[in-house]
Design a protein around this nucleic acid. Structure first.
Lengths: 231, 231
DNA sequence: CTGTCAAGTTGACGGTGTCAAGTGAATGCT
DNA sequence: AGCATTCACTTGACACCGTCAACTTGACAG
């Protein structure tokens, strides 16, 4: 803390921006909460006076958003890597969903700041998250496995995954399964099977009544063969 | 603001608590954000000095939680009313889910405070929400339509519903369908059909590959008859 | 009339985000 | 070489926040 700093030469002002972002990121990582990210704390850690932060960020919220977005392209990379390993678009979609959940749980502070807060409009983090899932969904539609408007289908998938991880993050004291992956897997299966079925069923159909459960049973038998689901 | 107040007689101290809660609730409703709920604002509106709030609430967060919980039993009533109108347990479950979503969108501030924030443990609002959905799910399991551990199944449904409404609340600027009910209906269908199907399919099955899409198509035809879905 | 105790107030402390004005060194211009 | 400009940053303040210790007020009991 309080590292010495020599004033930047003219034209090198952008260096301070990076230093501030670095200090803020470290602060976030060490404390595990965004409340610790005060302008005074990040300024002191950067070795600079408090109002200097305003030279590069219009206010605290912008700094917070910028530092949280810093980790966001890791999500894109992880998704592309894991999803690219398989050909089946539906399997790729489920891998995207799993990567999404893993990412959120790995960066709970950033995820909360960007997706679980009253963002005036729509946060860039949100549109990025959605974009990846929507693309993977569109591939499934092109392959004929899913039907309908890909964006709409993807919103449903996104809702399910976001709900899952945001509850895990915001309600850590709840009586969850001991292994969060169990919940995540369940939600992925529910969402994947649900959209595949829902996009075929008439719009005003409701979930199965007893007389139709038999149809589900019959269909399930054709699924009997275990398929690897390593995501 | 600044209403006149006569000091309560001994034994009537509890009256102030109600007055504070009322003022806080009004403040929340008028401003639409919990940031406006400062101790000074609620104290002034109650016609009392700021530290008097501490006579009835240990800190600001406790007051915030208490005032947000005030609206929570409305959720219970609404669920019981709407779900009790139908016999089919699966239809009752979908009605519960719809009531849940409507309630969250009707009380976005309260919902955010109680369910989308770093609650040290698990918020009482969360366990109440889950309880209702879990009970409705258990009824479906008893009826043989759903299978497995009701609590686990309910967590998936809860995730889907919470994800849906929490995204609508936190990302109002996103490019949602013009009618939020459209998204909610879609998610309910996805979640309901998905759990009904997922609880029959082997645990390591993934969503349908092309060769299995035919099975879904065949099943969907048995669903052809439109069923009323007025929730 | 006096003592007691609950109910509520006063005044302060340390912390926060934010802004207007000032400083000081490096650079470009003549 | 010397002056003016401009960039990078600091100083000092403001208003507001949650919170606490100490004080005051008023009703009742004896």
């Amino acid at each position: 803390m309080g590292a010495k700093r020599t004033k930047a030469r003219p034209g090198e002002g952008e260096k301070l921006r990076e230093e501030i972002l670095g200090a803020a990121e470290a602060l976030l990582g060490e404390t595990g909460t965004d409340e610790a990210l005060t302008l005074r704390a990040v300024a002191q850690r950067t070795g600079v006076s408090t109002p200097s932060v305003y030279l590069h960020f219009p206010n605290r919220d912008a700094l917070l958003e910028a530092v949280c977005l810093r980790v966001w392209d890791e999500l894109a990379h992880r998704m592309r890597d894991r999803a690219g390993e398989v050909d089946d678009p539906m399997r790729a979609l489920s891998r995207c969903a799993r990567v999404y959940a893993r990412f959120a749980l790995d960066h709970p502070v950033q995820y909360r700041v960007l997706l679980m807060r009253p963002s005036g409009g729509s946060s860039p983090g949100a549109v990025a998250c959605f974009r990846y899932l929507a693309d993977a969904t569109a591939a499934c539609v092109r392959a004929g496995i899913l039907r309908g408007e890909p964006e709409i289908l993807a919103m449903g998938l996104w809702s399910a995954m976001h709900g899952c991880v945001s509850l895990l993050i915001a309600q850590p004291g709840f009586d969850w399964p001991e292994e969060p992956e169990a919940l995540i897997d369940g939600v992925i299966r529910m969402a994947g099977l649900g959209t595949a079925l829902a996009c075929r069923v008439p719009r005003d159909a409701i979930p199965p009544s007893p007389e139709l459960a038999a149809g589900l049973d019959e269909l399930a038998t054709t699924w009997a063969g275990p398929r690897d689901f390593t995501g």
